[in-house]
């Protein structure tokens, strides 16, 4: 893979994924070849069952392909062991989930600092970065609150802060606006776009939201487990 350029953060080569659904093989991905470069703001779209979820699971190392290879920041995911993969995800990927999925028993500050705790970042640095990150996402003075004491939009901001605080190379976002009203969704999307411009982090969305598609710099459409269209705006 000498041809991988430094800016290629994700490269997939003939990625296939076959699931066993009660003895019946289901092809979720049918040979996906894609290259995503650093700093992209990419939306992956497609109808239900098109393979969006499976694709994001595989490029994040949460699931393994049946065939093919995935390079993430120059490393082959399938060649990593369990702990190595966990550490790699911790250091290189930020996750934003549709339902926020913050840890309900931890405060906002604890939720955001959790990944840094895993990485062994010193306490003072952790605190400073959490405060700065919360300020960046527009959530000052809420660090001591529990997620249940926040609105949906605020929770998603915390999730964004959690995903970005360790400065990963890639942010993977699963329908991040799906549970939000359009105004809050638009605000968050604008914020992520701004952060993408400012930090150069790569954002990859799985979405049905036209607003996200509109905002994306690159739009990849999956259909029947294959790349149907790939447009860069």
């Amino acid at each position: 893979m000498e041809q991988i350029q430094k800016t290629d953060v994700i490269v997939t080569e003939s990625v296939m994924k076959v699931y066993d659904a009660d003895g019946i093989p289901v092809n979720a991905l049918n040979g996906v070849d894609l290259t995503i470069q650093s700093g992209e703001f990419t939306a992956i779209v497609g109808p239900s069952g098109s393979g969006k979820t499976t694709f994001l699971n595989i490029i994040s190392g949460l699931d393994a392909p049946t065939e093919g290879k995935v390079w993430l920041s120059g490393k082959v995911l399938s060649e990593m062991g369990g702990n190595e993969l966990s550490d790699f995800r911790r250091d290189n990927i930020g996750f934003i989930f549709q339902a926020y999925n913050l840890i309900p028993v931890l405060t906002v500050e604890e939720n955001v600092e959790y990944i840094m705790l895993l990485a062994g970042v010193p306490k003072t640095e952790r605190h400073d970065r959490v405060v700065a990150m919360l300020e960046t996402v527009g959530l000052k003075d809420v660090e001591d609150r529990l997620p249940t004491q926040l609105s949906g939009g605020q929770q998603q901001r915390v999730a964004i802060a959690r995903a970005m605080v360790s400065e990963p190379a890639i942010i993977l976002a699963d329908e991040p606006t799906a549970n939000l009203d359009s105004k809050t969704g638009a605000d968050l999307l604008e914020m992520m776009r701004r952060l993408n411009d400012e930090t150069g982090m790569t954002f990859i969305f799985s979405t049905h939201d036209p607003m996200v598609m509109e905002s994306a710099k690159r739009l990849i459409t999956l259909r029947d487990g294959k790349v149907d269209t790939d447009e860069t705006k």
Binding site: D87, F95, F97, P104, Y114, I115, L118, A119
Partner: peptide, 16 residues
């Protein structure tokens, strides 16, 4: 379960 999945996804090791 989902919470554990999230903790695992964000980089918590098996032992953790």
């Amino acid at each position: 379960m989902f919470e554990f999945g999230v903790l695992r996804a964000v980089g918590t090791r098996s032992f953790g």
